[in-house]
Design a protein around this nucleic acid. Structure first.
Lengths: 244, 244
DNA sequence: GCAAAAGTGTTCTTCGTACACCCATGG
DNA sequence: CCATGGGTGTACGAAGAACACTTTTGC
């Protein structure tokens, strides 16, 4: 387990001499529900951290790529289908004592999910469930391991990605109004945005949203136009956070 | 080695049942020399990829954090001291076949280094040496493993970090002129910038650079004022790339 | 008509860009 | 003096912020 400690890299070593790590993937699955940013957590049944919440995740298998493992775990633990929006690698966490049982390096991934009707069903995990991000970050001990840190990093990544990419549409259903899109920005950034200026910026940015022609009816108020996600992935001009 | 494949995450498993991975750190060490962005590579002595260049790196030890391992490998393989500028995690690479010998997950790190007088000395590796990034990216097979991909990701990260952070000063000596700082931007972005507008933006951004009071003398031309890195880490207003 | 939400126009300011121009040194 | 690079002033346009105003529905 300790290794001969060859110091010059991958050369001159015997594989068996080197420390074995477990490699896992953890998932920060974000969605916007009820004007609030929420994250998918599961309830841990066993020690360590029994009874606490944790991010979904699990071990990477021998033949799998990291992203593949993340997609598999997402499906297994939450019943969510592949590509429920967008999945990207977030960062890796490998502090020696982050798991008391063994040396684990976890590759965290970030998923932007639309608010599906029944997002957590037919799940393999005991209980998968949406929780407000703000609530979990206010109580860092509610999450097992270093998952609070991972969540914080995922949130910060999400916040900055909304500024210069079109990923906010991943949080929306296939067709959406400008107000729904604004709700995404307001929930992720935790700030109120001017509806009038927001509307102009969104419709003015090239390839961000594309009108469908139809409108959405609602109680009280003029019906809103419906949009589809546009072709662009980068956002120009960018939508910068107010408190910059 | 294959595992019982418990599907519900870190619960109900026996550690010995799970696939063992080797975990390494790889380093993308960038600097600007001779008006050109360069990266530190070592020459591999042994198979696989014997004779080819590779990014410096090596195995993570049992008691080490990931960033710690990166700093140690940097010192061992290149003789560079800790914190030669700035070190941050880049991304992890874990394709099943990325190393023909064993299953390896590599956590890549990115270092911004100043152009030191003798950056590679007393090195443990056979030969560590600066190479132009553009040259290596134009010939992806010159680098071992998936290091070309890692380098490309590191370059893109560096490019965007210059836009909205003050990290460019990490490429400069402790005291520098605006022209030297501009050389960093031009080398990393591969674009010419207007010296006059650049000067105003740099000196106008809050906390980016701080005048020392002294000047630098040079052959032909008015002496330039010398600056130190300022206190800010974020850059406001941002310095955006021309071709946006 | 009235409330409510969607969407447009207008003004002010900030920032990017282009480029004319002046400043301070070495030769 | 003149070549060379450092640094400032100015003018125009694009984009952000604030907010008055018009539009289109339900009741």
């Amino acid at each position: 387990m300790t290794g001969r400690a060859a110091v010059s890299g991958p050369e001159n070593y015997d594989p068996a001499d080197y420390p074995a790590f477990a490699v896992t993937v953890d998932l920060v699955v974000l969605t916007v529900r009820e004007h609030d940013l929420q994250v998918l957590v599961i309830r841990r049944g066993e020690a360590p951290f029994a009874g606490r919440s944790a991010l979904p995740g699990g071990f990477v298998w021998p033949g799998e790529d990291l992203a593949e493992a993340a997609r598999r775990e997402l499906a297994e633990e939450t019943g969510m289908q592949v590509v429920p929006g967008h999945l990207e690698q977030l960062a890796s966490y490998g502090a020696p004592d982050r798991d008391p049982r063994m040396r684990v390096v976890s590759v965290a991934h970030l998923v932007f999910a639309a608010d599906l009707p029944s997002p957590v069903a037919g799940s393999d995990a005991a209980a998968a469930d949406w929780r407000p991000v703000s609530e979990l970050l206010a109580h860092p001990r509610w999450l097992a391991f270093d998952h609070s840190r991972i969540l914080a990093d995922g949130l910060e990544r999400a916040r900055s990605k909304l500024e210069y990419t079109t990923l906010a549409t991943s949080f929306c259903p296939p067709e959406f109004t400008v107000a729904q899109l604004r709700e995404v920005y307001e929930a992720v950034w935790g700030e109120r945005l001017d509806p009038r200026n927001f509307h102009r910026k969104v419709t003015g940015a090239t390839g961000f949203v594309e009108p469908t022609g139809s409108t959405s009816s609602r109680a009280g108020g003029r019906p809103a136009e419906l949009f589809r996600p546009g072709a662009a992935s980068g956002l120009y001009p960018a939508l910068l956070r107010p408190g910059s």
